Structure formats: structure tokens, C-alpha cells
Amino acid sequence: TEVDLHLGDITIKLKDVSEEIVKRAKELFKNGWSAEFVKKWIEEAVK
């Protein structure tokens, strides 16, 4: 499945990412993480 994760003005296309990771990524962004950091976190999380 593909998900578009909207973080501010940046959209990250996610492939084969669990709902849990998407939820967590949104929380991290809301908590002040930059979109770049969230993207890196996701990449690490799906390895």
C-alpha cells in the first residue's frame, strides 16, 4: 500500500509502511520534529 504523509508543506510518499509507523511519524512531526527528521526516522523504522 502507498500512503502520502503530509508534513507541513512537505509530502512524503510511503510504500509498505504500517499504520503504526504513519501514526508515530505524525506524532513526531506534531511534537516539533522537522519533516526531514521524520523522513529519516521512517526510513530507519522500515529497515
Score class of each variant (00 low, 15 high):
1 T>C: 09
1 T>S: 13
1 T>H: 15
2 E>V: 13
2 E>Q: 09
2 E>L: 12
2 E>A: 09
2 E>S: 13
3 V>D: 10
3 V>A: 12
3 V>K: 08
4 D>K: 06
4 D>Q: 14
4 D>A: 13
4 D>P: 03
5 L>H: 03
5 L>T: 02
5 L>A: 03
5 L>Y: 02
6 H>D: 11
6 H>L: 13
6 H>Y: 05
6 H>Q: 12
6 H>M: 12
6 H>F: 07
7 L>E: 02
7 L>K: 01
8 G>R: 04
8 G>W: 03
8 G>T: 03
8 G>D: 06
8 G>M: 04
8 G>S: 04
9 D>F: 05
9 D>H: 15
10 I>K: 06
10 I>E: 11
10 I>W: 05
11 T>S: 10
11 T>N: 06
11 T>F: 06
11 T>Q: 08
11 T>R: 09
12 I>H: 03
12 I>P: 02
13 K>P: 09
13 K>C: 10
13 K>W: 04
14 L>G: 03
14 L>W: 04
14 L>T: 04
14 L>S: 02
15 K>C: 07
15 K>S: 11
16 D>Q: 06
16 D>H: 08
16 D>A: 07
17 V>N: 01
17 V>P: 04
17 V>S: 03
18 S>P: 14
18 S>R: 07
19 E>L: 12
19 E>G: 09
19 E>Y: 08
19 E>I: 09
19 E>K: 07
19 E>N: 10
19 E>V: 11
19 E>R: 08
20 E>H: 12
20 E>M: 09
20 E>F: 06
21 I>H: 03
21 I>T: 05
21 I>V: 09
22 V>M: 09
22 V>K: 04
22 V>G: 02
23 K>I: 10
23 K>Q: 14
24 R>H: 14
24 R>G: 09
24 R>L: 11
24 R>A: 14
25 A>K: 00
25 A>C: 03
25 A>Y: 01
26 K>Y: 13
26 K>D: 05
26 K>L: 15
27 E>F: 04
27 E>V: 06
27 E>C: 06
28 L>P: 00
29 F>I: 09
29 F>D: 01
30 K>E: 15
31 N>V: 04
31 N>T: 06
32 G>M: 01
32 G>H: 03
33 W>Y: 15
33 W>T: 05
33 W>F: 14
33 W>S: 11
35 A>H: 07
35 A>G: 07
35 A>S: 08
35 A>I: 15
35 A>F: 07
35 A>L: 08
36 E>S: 07
36 E>T: 03
37 F>V: 13
37 F>I: 13
37 F>D: 15
38 V>G: 00
38 V>C: 04
38 V>R: 00
39 K>M: 14
39 K>Q: 15
39 K>A: 14
40 K>N: 15
40 K>Q: 15
40 K>P: 00
40 K>W: 15
41 W>A: 01
41 W>P: 00
41 W>V: 01
42 I>T: 01
42 I>V: 10
42 I>K: 00
43 E>A: 06
43 E>W: 06
44 E>N: 11
44 E>A: 10
44 E>G: 07
44 E>T: 10
45 A>M: 15
45 A>T: 14
45 A>P: 00
45 A>S: 08
46 V>S: 10
47 K>P: 03
47 K>A: 14
47 K>I: 10
